[in-house]
Design a protein around this nucleic acid. Sequence first.
DNA 1: ACCGTTTTGGAACCACCGGTTTCGTTACTC
DNA 2: GAGTAACGAAACCGGTGGTTCCAAAACGGT
Lengths: 208, 208
Amino acid sequence: MPARKQARNPGGRPRDSRVDDAIATAVRELLVEVGYPRLTMAEVAARAGVGKAAIYRRHATKQEMIFDVLLPDRFLAVPPDRGSLRADLAAVLAEVAEAMATPPPGTVPGLLADIHADPALHDRFTERYLGAQRRTLTEILDHATARGELTTRPDPAVLNALLVGPAFAWLFLLSESPAELPALTSALLDAAVALATQGPPAPRTTPA
Amino acid sequence: MPARKQARNPGGRPRDSRVDDAIATAVRELLVEVGYPRLTMAEVAARAGVGKAAIYRRHATKQEMIFDVLLPDRFLAVPPDRGSLRADLAAVLAEVAEAMATPPPGTVPGLLADIHADPALHDRFTERYLGAQRRTLTEILDHATARGELTTRPDPAVLNALLVGPAFAWLFLLSESPAELPALTSALLDAAVALATQGPPAPRTTPA
DNA sequence: ACCGTTTTGGAACCACCGGTTTCGTTACTC
DNA sequence: GAGTAACGAAACCGGTGGTTCCAAAACGGT
């Protein structure tokens, strides 16, 4: 049985918050140095200067440890209304792009593989990350609709895939440089907003 | 030192091709049943009815074994000219989408994580997969340019990210159903072709 | 001041994994 | 028939994830 995540204190020694920070820092450093598959719990403990027991008291498994370090609770807050559909989408897309581009290249795919392999992790990811993102996009669409910027209201999931997907493929499938991400997302946003305001493209004249 | 991949026979017992098939089948089955991270070489050997030595005689590591099984040499052949930009793009996109959607959900992210962690694998992936895809897209753009379907010629890597990315995110980030992939890619193609033929969208009137 | 509770770093422990090697056997070429 | 290499099976090794135990230390309640 994995260790519990939250042991409430009616008494006894409180947790040392510097241990939490040391673990998180060690995980981030080791992800950069050895990559996701070669990260070991023993090395995290050694790097952080803590015992393995202190780690397992906070995180049940290696996968959850990395998940917790990379996706803290305060991920994707309520979106501020920036006055236009494009600005709103640019803000959330920039936040997602930065979250994907910050850890070393193999980290996000590795974490996704573990998420797909473990139903419990998959559920946590769905609520914490996808749910928040869906709510954010829905709110952005509400604002755009109120402004009259939309001719049709797209499905949030489809919109999410269309916006985040290219940056995703750019970084992890093509292994291209994060430096060129802003240009890619900017062009993508121009195209998406143009289509959304002009209505869907005319049906093609040549048969498929 | 890992075992060699190709030991040519001037004499001696030839390789049993049924062993190759048994290994590939076992890998595919086990990927479905236990997922990428929990696939073990011992179980592949047991499932295939084969000794571990026979596997390592063909594939140097577990990562390369899965890579070889999932991305055989004959991946992405020369693209037939289907007469229109949309049809050409639809053909290559359908092929890529099928390759991503066929193995179980965690497989592609897991393989990508290993590819990013191992420079040798990364090189093989870049030439075998990305190189072929880049050549295919370049050829498609040549045909479209000759037909006068393009106002500006996009960069193949950007085009690749814009086309494949949404399907990528749809399957592995959002964990949505592969059944709805054709609708997603079809709408995406309509939009992309409309933009490519009409020229880039008009610059936005509201400031960013 | 004392006691019970909990966390601390450190170390030991276990089952298992990836990878290599060895074994006797089998199938093919020269 | 001699030589060679692949075959299935099994043993082996270093290392890993995860669990548990330990004595010391830090806190709240009384």
